[in-house]
Amino acid sequence: MAKTDPETLPYRPCVGALVVNGDGLVFIGHRADGPEEPEGPGTWWQMPQGGIDDGEDPLEAVYRELYEETSIRSVRLVAESRDWIRYDLPPELVGKAWKGRYRGQTQKWYLLRFTGEESEIDILTPGGGHHKAEFNAWKWAPLEELTELVVPFKRDVYRRIVAEFADALK
């Protein structure tokens, strides 16, 4: 089988949500991936994120993705990342993840303030009829811990997001 050249593949357009509660802690979910997933079994935490549908506005996409992964609807927009942030998949995942169609992701991130009750959060049967739970556990984590909890190839993205949103979180 020929190896996929990442230079020939586009980036997948996506959005991400840094959801912060009243105590300044950030929502993170533990990945529920099985061993059959290209990235392997979920062994890391991440913030809600996902693809943008054709013709969908990125802000609409972040609200949809957040609801589909967490059932959260009670949020207020605080800030939007200045730029789209890209990351590349590790070479061993190129050609496997996302059916081999992308070399990585280009993401627009949003800082959202959670305004609801924790009882609203449901990761096991999330909203929107999402076919499969993305997370099998969740917690509120300090901003400083985010980069250590995520899979290594996404750490630079998380460092940039944390740095960019730090002032807005004060």
Rank of each mutant, 00 (worst) to 15 (best):
M1Y: 11
T4R: 03
D5V: 10
T8W: 01
R12F: 08
L18M: 14
V19C: 03
V19P: 00
V20S: 01
V20C: 06
G22P: 08
D23V: 02
V26A: 05
G29V: 02
H30D: 04
R31N: 04
A32M: 07
A32N: 10
A32P: 05
D33I: 05
G34Y: 02
G34L: 11
P35W: 01
E36W: 12
P38M: 02
G40S: 08
P41Q: 13
P41M: 09
T43C: 12
W44G: 05
W45K: 02
W45F: 12
Q49Y: 08
G50E: 00
G50I: 00
G51F: 06
G51V: 02
I52V: 11
D53L: 11
D53E: 13
G55T: 06
E56R: 03
E56W: 05
E56F: 04
E56C: 05
D57V: 04
D57S: 07
P58I: 02
P58R: 04
L59W: 11
E60I: 12
E60F: 04
V62T: 02
V62M: 03
Y63H: 15
R64N: 06
E65D: 10
Y67S: 06
Y67Q: 05
Y67F: 08
E69T: 09
S74I: 08
V75N: 00
L77P: 06
L77M: 15
V78W: 02
A79S: 06
E80K: 06
R82D: 14
R82Q: 11
D83L: 13
D83R: 13
I85C: 07
I85V: 15
I85S: 04
I85L: 15
Y87M: 12
D88K: 04
G95L: 00
K96A: 14
A97M: 10
Y102W: 09
Q105F: 08
T106H: 11
Q107W: 06
K108F: 09
W109A: 01
W109V: 00
Y110V: 06
L111P: 02
L112V: 09
F114Q: 01
F114T: 01
T115P: 13
T115Q: 15
E117I: 10
E118S: 10
E118C: 09
I121L: 08
L124W: 06
T125L: 09
T125D: 15
P126K: 07
G127N: 10
G127M: 10
H130E: 03
H131G: 07
K132A: 08
E134V: 12
F135N: 00
F135D: 00
N136L: 10
N136M: 15
N136T: 13
A137L: 15
A137R: 15
W138N: 01
K139Q: 12
K139P: 03
W140I: 01
W140V: 01
W140G: 00
W140R: 05
P142H: 07
P142R: 03
E144P: 02
E145P: 01
L146E: 00
L149A: 07
L149I: 10
V150S: 03
V151D: 09
P152C: 06
P152S: 12
F153Y: 05
R155A: 01
D156A: 11
D156S: 07
D156M: 07
D156R: 12
Y158G: 00
R159G: 04
R160Y: 14
I161T: 01
V162L: 09
A163G: 07
A166G: 12
D167E: 15
L169K: 04
